[in-house]
Amino acid sequence: MAYSITSLCVNCFACMDVCPSRAIAEAKPHFVVDARTCTHCEGDYADAQCASICPVEGAILDPDGLAANPPGSLTGIPPERLLALAACSPA
């Protein structure tokens, strides 16, 4: 398995610019990782570059399919706080 991008992606190009394998492409509705080209950055960097620069929690999944940046890990906003806000705002 490779890294992958979810629908939470905001199409900011950051991951594409830093990917050492050029495995990430602009696409609709959001950027995609080419699973055959992705190397997990092994041999290039200690950390997967896409997961290290992505600003959106949950937008990048690691090879196990888990969020590389789980809720709260980037913004510092406690996830329960976000849930509470979502619950009281009109959809």
Binding site: V10, N11, C12, F13, A14, D17, I53, P55, V56, L74, T75, G76
Partner: peptide, 16 residues
């Protein structure tokens, strides 16, 4: 210039 290299506590990258 959509990409950023830092996060500021007054910014939300999802906002548009």
């Amino acid at each position: 210039a959509p990409a950023c290299n830092i996060q500021c506590n007054y910014c939300n990258r999802k906002y548009d």
